[in-house]
Write a protein that binds this DNA or RNA. Structure first.
Length: 822
RNA sequence: GCCGGAGUGGCGGAAUUGGCAGACGCGCGCGACUCAAAAUCGCGAGUCCUAUGGACGUGUGGGUUCGAUUCCCACCUCCGGCACCA
């Protein structure tokens, strides 16, 4: 570094080494300072750190650094979500052990991450595939099991035929119902699996009070949970069995002219008459052969079969036929509906097709509609008719109890004991069993005599064996292991079998924020001393794609732990911010197959980490993202070189230095500080960089005008470097030293805005005539409205536009604009 | 179908409380330096016109207002979520 130019390739590794040697980013409990837990989503060790990781992590790092300079004791940890399918797929494809593949990738990515110059406290690193970690993942499973939150159920579950495993409902995406990971259409398989009772928390998960999460995530989660308010009503079959239905429209009960059961409904067998049995069996068989996509296609014509059985409508004692149809889903509500063809379009179509009665029970006042005349269902407002005691009750379009008809009927149903108010959710319980090897084994034992038995806590972890053969058979690889699964039953000591499935990796990531707090702690998942100091997470950053997966699971997990007395508070993460994604230069998603991948390593080698960081912060709104531009990065890169030269090259001749100019220096510095402070707070990274660029341009001019070396200049360089430090930590540290400030800029105190200095003393008065800009005048700040008006009217240009007319009205706005209306 | 979000120069984007549209940057043009190039520095540019001036201009059409990228209504396009959900 003899030529005095900016060489990021030299200064960056130098400072990274020093920061690490000094433990500059170690965060320890310090009761004397306010804590700040900044968390960014941990990566899956896929092999290489890509631009998306940089885009997620470096602005998050800048924000954490800013908080630190503001005086907070900031913890910003990092780790790896190390279990998962790609490791196993690599094993199958390339004959490399998943453990080896994973840990090699971790080594590589950790080294890559260190080139970011982020303030990660690596002592806190947690790797979910370490036995010391997954011991506690298993322990949490046992706690959930002991509290009745984990249960086993046989059900038709989603199965990915490519990944050869079951999936949670959340991992099946899109209209085509494809596997979230590999894009293969999922199929249904009837299997006995482990579930977590996330549905117990459906209601609570809908409340976001007290947490600052993006509206968008709240909407996604709310849609996903899918709350609907209505009533559960009990019909009776002629055989005396009860059929519960869920309806959002109890006010239309008198219009129920038939019932429909899902083909798989348990009562179908019993209710079907001998004459109808053959037809019913045939329909059921056809339904099972259809894929979910076919079956759930909304434009499909409705089909169904009469069971021969009848039920009794409790509200009017009417005998109504019971049908089966695949438009009724076993997985929603009770798997049975009361069909009200006059007021539900689906029921209407079905009734018309099969010649079933349509009876109007709600119609607009003054209309005389009868069911036979209807051309479509009427799901709108009106007055109840044909409804016994409720005739004349107005029905609005409001949902649930807000609708007077629904409210009245529901109350009546409860009194008559025909039914009750009920809330139904679309959310399903979380299926966590995976028929794969590279995950945390489910710590349960199946004993012929004792049934399902938990592995005693003192026997954890249930270690994953290393000697495994990977065959994509659809069976858990652990099942095929010669000896692993055989264990004595913890209760009766007879030979029993371990559960051979592993846990969904979202289970590992539901609590990693706790493991970071004490990754070496052996007495429990987390040292409560650390927990009590650091939790909750103050700021959580990551991609929106986790809205209905990780982010819903981790909230559930926290709430479940809270109810078990392990965690505290209603929510684990107080503030959430999502970054967008960096696309390839062709605006397509970066992918190897498209050949549009931009390698951060190469860019760091070419421009330096600071330039990559600054560009990622600058090029778009962080929560939006956008296409990478290999030309665009030249801008921030040039800016860093200009900043370097600005503070390392001596100033010009410095003739007569104008006091007014020095005042301008301070004004611009403090104006920028005000803006930049606000923008760091609000994650508006792009305007941080542009404000600093503007200030750079101004400082060049001031330097030219002789400001260099003055007190004002010294303050300007200090504040400038401090504002820059979170974004570009290496160059800021280097220049900080070169201007003679003590190491380290990153532990220096965030400067205070001098409001007085930031004030302008002269403003440019904008003068409009009829709302159109006509002139600009320099006036003293704080000039009275009267004087502003006078100044505006005195302007020659303005007079020209007034054309001698008298102003009707003169408006002064914000002390800086006059609008003259004629 | 329902629920969100977005639409601003050639490009990425800015405009914080309804008050100068286009900050900052990329790219482009011209110039300086250079034998030349790169780098660097300086200057220029929304569009159009009858050009020291003016008209138009933030997806489209209306509205409110002295004044609208910003608020309201309708529509178009794109993106995302949910969807035979009873």
């Amino acid at each position: 570094m003899t030529d005095n130019h900016y060489h990021p390739g030299e200064i960056e590794p130098k400072w990274q080494a020093k920061w690490e040697a000094d433990g500059l980013y170690h965060a320890d409990i310090d009761e004397s300072r306010p804590k700040f837990y900044a968390l960014t989503m941990l990566p899956y060790p896929s092999g290489d750190l890509h631009m998306g990781h940089w885009f997620a992590m470096t602005p998050s790092d800048a924000r954490a650094r800013f908080k630190r300079m503001q005086g907070y004791n900031v913890l910003f940890p990092m780790g790896f979500d190390a279990f998962g399918l790609p490791a196993e797929n690599a094993a199958i494809k390339r004959n490399i052990h998943p453990k080896e593949w994973t840990y090699r990738n971790i080594e590589n990515m950790r080294a890559q991450m260190k080139t970011m110059g982020a303030m990660f406290d690596w002592r806190r690193e947690a790797v979910s595939a370490d036995p010391e970690y997954y011991k506690w993942t298993q322990w949490f499973f046992l706690q959930l099991f002991k509290h009745g939150m984990a249960y086993r159920k046989r059900a038709a579950v989603d199965w990915c035929p490519t990944d050869n495993t079951t999936l949670a409902r959340e991992q099946v995406v899109g209209e085509d119902r494809v596997c979230e990971r590999c894009g293969t259409p999922v199929i249904k398989k009837e299997l006995e699996q482990w579930f977590f009772k996330i549905t117990d928390y459906a209601e609570e998960l809908l409340y976001f009070e007290g947490i600052d999460w993006p509206e968008r995530v709240q909407t996604l989660q709310t849609n996903w949970i899918g709350r609907s308010e209505g009533a559960r009503v009990f019909f009776k079959t002629e055989g005396g069995d009860s059929i519960g239905v869920f309806t959002t429209r109890p006010d239309t009960l008198w219009g129920a002219t038939f019932m429909v059961l899902a083909p798989e409904h348990p009562l179908v067998e019993k209710i079907t008459t001998e004459e109808q049995r053959a037809a019913v069996e045939e329909y059921k068989f056809a339904a099972t052969r259809q894929s979910d996509i076919e079956r759930e296609a909304t434009d499909k014509e409705k089909t169904g079969v009469f069971t021969g059985g009848y039920a009794v409508n409790p509200v009017n004692g009417e005998r109504i036929p019971v049908w089966i149809a695949d438009y009724v889903l076993l997985t929603y509500g009770t798997g049975a509906i009361m069909a009200v063809p006059a007021h539900d379009q689906r029921d209407f179509e079905f009734a018309r097709k099969y010649g079933l009665e349509v009876r109007v029970v709600i119609r607009p006042e003054g209309e005389a509609w009868e069911g036979a005349d209807l051309e479509a269902a009427w799901p709108h407002e009106g007055v109840m008719v044909n409804s016994g005691p409720f005739d004349g009750t107005p029905a609005t379009e409001a949902k649930g109890g807000a609708n007077p008809a629904i409210k009245a009927v529901t109350e009546w149903l409860e009194k008559q004991k025909f039914g009750e108010a009920s809330v139904n959710y679309r959310l399903r319980d979380w299926l966590i069993s995976r028929q794969r090897y590279w995950g945390a084994p489910i710590p349960m034992i199946h004993c012929k005599t004792c049934g399902i038995v938990a592995v005693p806590e003192d026997q954890l972890p249930v270690l994953l064996p290393d000697d495994i053969e990977w065959k994509p058979t659809g069976e858990s690889p652990l099942k095929l292991h010669a000896t692993w699964k055989t264990v004595p039953c913890p209760v009766c000591d007879e030979p029993a079998e371990r559960d051979t499935d592993t846990m969904d990796t979202f289970m590992c990531s539901s609590w990693y924020h706790l493991r970071y707090l004490s990754p070496q702690y052996a007495e429990g998942p987390v040292d409560m001393k650390e927990y009590n100091y650091w939790m909750p997470v103050d700021t959580y950053t990551g991609g929106i794609e986790h809205a209905t997966m990780h982010l819903i699971y981790t909230r559930f997990f926290h709430k479940a732990l809270r109810d078990m007395g392990i965690a505290e508070g209603p929510e684990p993460m107080l503030q959430l911010r999502n970054q967008g994604s960096v696309l390839g230069e062709d605006s397509a998603k970066m992918s190897k197959s498209k050949g549009n991948v931009v390698s951060p390593d190469e860019l760091v080698a070419q421009y330096g980490a600071d330039a990559v960081r600054a560009y990622l912060m600058f090029f778009t709104r962080w929560n939006v993202g956008g296409p990478w531009s290999s030309q665009g990065i030249e801008g921030p890169s040039r800016w860093l070189r200009r900043v370097w030269a600005l503070f390392t090259e001596p100033g010009g001749p410095g003739n007569t230095v104008q006091m007014a100019m020095l005042k301008d220096v301070r004004r611009r510095v403090h104006q920028t500080l005000k803006q930049v402070t606000r923008d760091y707070e609000q994650f508006e990274f792009n305007t941080i960089i542009s404000s600093l660029m503007e200030l750079t341009n101004d400082l060049y001019r001031f330097k030219e005008e002789g400001a260099y070396g003055t007190t004002q200049w010294r303050e300007a360089q200090e504040i400038f470097l401090q504002m820059m430090a979170p974004a570009a930590p290496h160059i800021a540290e280097e220049l900080w030293g070169r201007i003679g400030k003590p190491y380290s800029i990153h532990t220096s105190q965030w400067p205070k805005v001098d409001e007085e200095a930031a004030k302008v003393d002269e403003i440019e008065l904008v003068v409009q005539v009829n709302g159109k800009l006509r002139d600009k005048l320099m006036v003293a700040a704080g000039t009275s409205e009267e004087d502003l008006k006078a100044a505006a009217l005195a302007s020659e240009t303005v007079q020209k536009f007034l054309e001698g007319k008298e102003p009707k009205k003169v408006i002064v706005a914000g002390g800086a604009l006059v609008n003259i209306v004629v």
